[in-house]
Design a protein around this nucleic acid. Structure first.
Lengths: 150, 150
DNA sequence: TTATCATTTGACACTCATTATCATTAAGCA
DNA sequence: TGCTTAATGATAATGAGTGTCAAATGATAA
């Protein structure tokens, strides 16, 4: 935890940004909720517990900054809200989503499913891939087993 | 064109919806702009040319209805606007996007890139896939060739 | 320490896509 | 021709996100 915050601090400073208390509090919330796909409003509520004076605009600005620095990914499941995921360190950024149409749960896959596919796309369409988003919509294993009708 | 409208009409009627003139005008616009990823506002403007009395709310309602019926896909490139794509008929629905970070162009791929991947996901995560979204972000072939710096 | 100056913050007004409301109109049907 | 329900258009309301600006903060140099 502290090491990750330290690395983010250095990353900010290398671009002459500061790790202010507000930003640190925000990052801590993201670290404590790594797999929760929090919306800006979610983050705001959680940060307020530890840092009640913080303003919503600051949370938005921090999330935007962290997105620029590629510390978080801003993702969109089509429900009208952006969500923010802390990126995994080190390992390449393979991270796909399973969105359940039944219960709304969002699970993650940490596998590199697209290695070959990316190579093919780069060659055939002469498109230099920087990033990708892959989301599956369907019925998750929980709803699947509870509801034999579908 | 007329046959496709006919089929959509039947699909609507099978759920006891009507193909009103407003809905038909909207569908025609979608048919005439199949690969353009129109936003609701875009559709509204285009429909107004042929049907000036139509209201924006009706366009939204029609697009929502068509989305429910799986006649169109509502997609989101993260620019704050939903876009609507008519689904291909017959053939399975393989349709991915290449979003250029340089010029903002959105190209399409009509290939089944994910057949094997889907099988694996269904098995390993016990997730019953109904649909997927795959988007690549990067530099398109046009910007790529014009700008040798990157 | 203190003065200085750019960065950051919080409050709040504002934008803009989308949705809800509601009175009116049109369609299908007895 | 009436009746009932679905659909429409106008417009108000919602809500996520952004812009503005004065005040607060932080790093740095004297």
């Amino acid at each position: 935890m502290e090491q990750r915050i330290d690395r983010i601090k250095k990353q900010l400073q290398s671009q002459s940004y500061k790790l202010t208390p507000q930003r640190e509090a925000t990052v801590r919330v993201l670290l404590e909720h790594e797999d929760d796909h929090l919306s800006a409003e979610d983050v705001y509520m959680l940060v307020k517990e530890k840092y009640p004076e913080i303003g919503l605009a600051t949370v938005y600005r921090t999330l935007e900054l962290l997105t620029e620095l590629k510390v978080v990914d801003k993702i969109n499941f089509g429900d009208g809200v952006s969500r923010y995921d802390l990126r995994q360190e080190g390992a390449a950024h393979f991270h796909h989503h399973l969105v359940c149409l039944e219960c709304g749960a969002v699970d993650e896959i940490q596998e590199d499913l697209l290695g070959d596919v990316e190579d093919e796309v780069e060659k055939r369409w002469n498109f230099q891939i920087k990033d990708h988003r892959l989301t599956f919509h369907g019925i998750c294993h929980r709803c699947h087993s509870e509801d034999p009708s579908s």
